[in-house]
């Protein structure tokens, strides 16, 4: 029996955006690649620097969730997703309108993450190329949310853009992108034969070249689930931080036992997601470290969003932390 189940519209919005606009939130290629202007990275090379637009879209996720809450102020939770359907049906998805409220300083901060990552890798001696406006989102969310048939059609488009770079290695900033490129793409596409690396791995390989951190207060690592459990990257983070002389505090749940930031359920269950993230922040803050470090865009966003107001503990991406020493 063929049964079609109608899912909450927010999932349809995300799916539609990826398939139509090559990006979960329908951001423009020019916007996503604006961070790279000053660097003049070539379009072709051995090593492709891949952002997938993921850090760049962080400030807009909250905006999407907020907009939907605004549309239906009644009860939160799922009826707010009904609101999103109206949004989708009547006016189409007006990215401009929905995202108008995003603060310039937030945009700048997250755009800068990609910039900082590229600069760090260059300083460590890596030659990078970049797809610029052509770069497409990896489609990790299509995989995550069950849109596997869509992914089968979408992946070849992404692969085609990657192919044009002539690269042999793909460097992913997001572990989610690394995950699909590494495990899923080769199975969907016969000829996706790239070496897929995360930013963390590349830094780790050249960590002896890293300058000492200009920060001498204790830090705590929030291991991302994908990085620790799927990609087996946990010790590398500690090695990198030790090599720049940072004092590392460890939370009770770390490495393979890390606690999820709650990010994956942000779109469907924002309240529960927020509670989960808040608890994780509390676990990390118990170490009394000055800064919480993570190496995943969604962890960064989820943890920051749930931190109690007035907390003294900073939350940064590893990229931002390392850049302080490099610049």
């Amino acid at each position: 029996m063929a049964v079609e189940m109608k899912l909450p519209p927010v999932l349809e919005i995300i799916r539609g955006n990826i398939v139509k606009h090559g990006n979960p939130l329908a951001l423009k290629g020019s916007e996503i690649s604006s961070w790279a202007k000053a660097l003049n990275l070539p379009a072709r090379g051995e090593m492709l620097f891949y952002t997938g637009g993921e850090y760049q879209l962080l400030p807009f996720i909250d905006s999407l969730v907020k907009t939907m809450t605004y549309v239906d102020q009644g009860s939160k939770g799922f009826s707010l997703m009904m609101g999103a359907r109206n949004l989708l049906n009547k006016a189409g998805i007006s990215a401009e309108k929905m995202y108008a409220s995003v603060l310039a300083k937030d945009k700048d901060r997250y755009n800068a993450v990609s910039y900082k990552a590229a600069v760090i890798l260059q300083k460590l001696g890596y030659d990078l190329c970049y797809g610029g406006e052509q770069e497409l989102y990896s489609g990790a969310l299509l995989y995550e949310l069950g849109y596997w048939q869509d992914l089968q059609e979408y992946a070849p488009r992404v692969a085609n853009v990657i192919k044009q770079s002539g690269a042999k290695t793909i460097v992913c900033l997001s572990p989610h992108a690394a995950e699909v490129f590494k495990f899923i793409y080769p199975k969907i596409l016969g000829d996706f034969k790239y070496e897929v690396k995360t930013f963390v791995e590349l830094v780790w390989e050249q960590r002896h070249k890293l300058p000492a951190a200009s920060f001498n207060k204790p830090v705590v690592i929030h291991d991302s689930c994908r990085l620790a459990r799927e990609l087996n990257i946990e010790q590398e983070l500690r090695d990198i931080l030790s090599s720049v002389g940072a004092e590392i505090r460890e939370p009770e749940c770390k490495g393979k036992w890390t606690t999820c930031c709650g990010g994956p359920s942000k779109l469907l269950f924002p309240e529960v997601s927020h509670t989960i993230a808040g608890r994780r922040v509390a676990e990390l803050e118990q170490t009394e470290a000055e800064v919480i470090l993570t190496a995943c865009p969604y962890c960064l966003s989820a943890l920051e969003g749930a931190q109690e107001k007035g907390s003294q503990t900073g939350i940064e991406d590893l990229i931002e932390f390392l850049y302080r020493g490099v610049k």
């Binding site: 689930c225 036992w257 999820c260 994956p264 269950f269 989960i276």
Partner: peptide
């Protein structure tokens, strides 16, 4: 859809 697929 509630599962985080976090794997713990």
């Amino acid at each position: 859809y509630t599962c985080l697929r976090c794997g713990r």
